[in-house]
């Protein structure tokens, strides 16, 4: 069980958090203009890398705020955490992974 550093609350037990999958998947500006294929990509397809992965997490049993993280899916280690950008969160640039 991990200790996850909520950007607002500090380190908390993993059970307080919920996983939100891949970060920076933008809701399409105009879904109606997308092909079925393009729409399916948005709805169902997410990256699944073995290694560092930019993700969204939410501190469900704490401040209830979403944040971004880069985590290594091999070791589960959080490489960095930070707030989602103030504007277009899914498209936002996530905090850089610290090597």
């Amino acid at each position: 069980m991990q200790l996850i550093a909520c950007p607002w609350c500090g380190p908390r037990e993993e059970i307080e958090f919920s996983y939100g999958g891949q970060a920076a998947v933008a809701y399409p500006a105009d879904p109606a203009s997308l092909s079925d294929e393009q729409w399916a990509r948005f709805v169902f397809f997410r990256d699944n890398p073995k290694g560092p992965f930019a993700e969204r997490w939410v501190h469900s049993a704490g401040c209830r705020r979403w944040f971004g993280a880069v985590r290594d899916t091999r070791t589960y280690e959080f490489l960095s955490v930070g707030p989602l950008s103030a504007t277009t969160a899914r498209t936002s640039v996530l905090p850089e992974a610290t090597p």
Partner: peptide, 14 residues
Amino acid sequence: LDWMEEWLQTEWPE
């Protein structure tokens, strides 16, 4: 509630 928060915070924080 989680669903609404997710959209609000991650997609439409404005």
